[in-house]
């Protein structure tokens, strides 16, 4: 069981309750997973697009939190927007997601996230997120 400090901060009550878990760390980047279950099912035997989006968002915030933690920056994160591209139907399999910070600015960050199931080379969905970072003295 991975017990990095940032996984406690990264998992929101929503993510925990949906069944999203921190799977592993890859080069300082958290990889999240979610097993298929009734509560993430949309049309029969397929993942709901909203649950896929929730997984992508969770991985996006977590990679940013991990980086801010690493460089010692304290900020609360506020969503600006997310654009999700659904590339393939999510089947009755475990899904994974990991984010990458494309640009870390002073006030906002741009993050790309990918979600996949059995083959990381064939993502089922990708997302681009812009996140506002608010510090205490702002």
């Amino acid at each position: 069981m991975v017990t990095e400090h940032s996984d406690i901060e990264a998992l929101t009550p929503y993510a925990r309750s949906l069944g999203i878990a921190l799977e592993r760390w890859e080069d300082g980047t958290p990889v999240f997973s979610i097993g298929f279950s009734d509560i993430i099912e949309g049309r029969p035997a397929h993942m709901h697009g909203g649950a896929t989006g929730g997984l992508l968002e969770t991985a996006g915030y977590a990679v940013l939190r991990a980086e801010l933690d690493r460089i010692g920056r304290v900020a609360s994160l506020k969503p600006i927007n997310i654009t999700v591209q659904y590339l393939a139907a999510g089947r009755e399999l475990t899904s994974y997601a990991r984010g990458r910070i494309t640009k870390l600015g002073r006030r906002s960050a741009n993050i790309t996230v990918e979600a996949w199931q059995d083959d990381p080379a064939r993502p089922i969905a990708t997302a681009v997120m812009n996140v506002m970072m608010v510090t205490e003295n702002q």
Partner: peptide
């Protein structure tokens, strides 16, 4: 609902459920 919150410190819905709501 309490277990749909984003940041625990703020009593505000996470954005994931809003994605699901709008998708549906």
């Amino acid at each position: 609902r309490e277990d749909l919150l984003g940041e625990s410190a703020q009593q505000v819905l996470a954005s994931g459920p809003i994605l699901s709501l709008m998708d549906m």
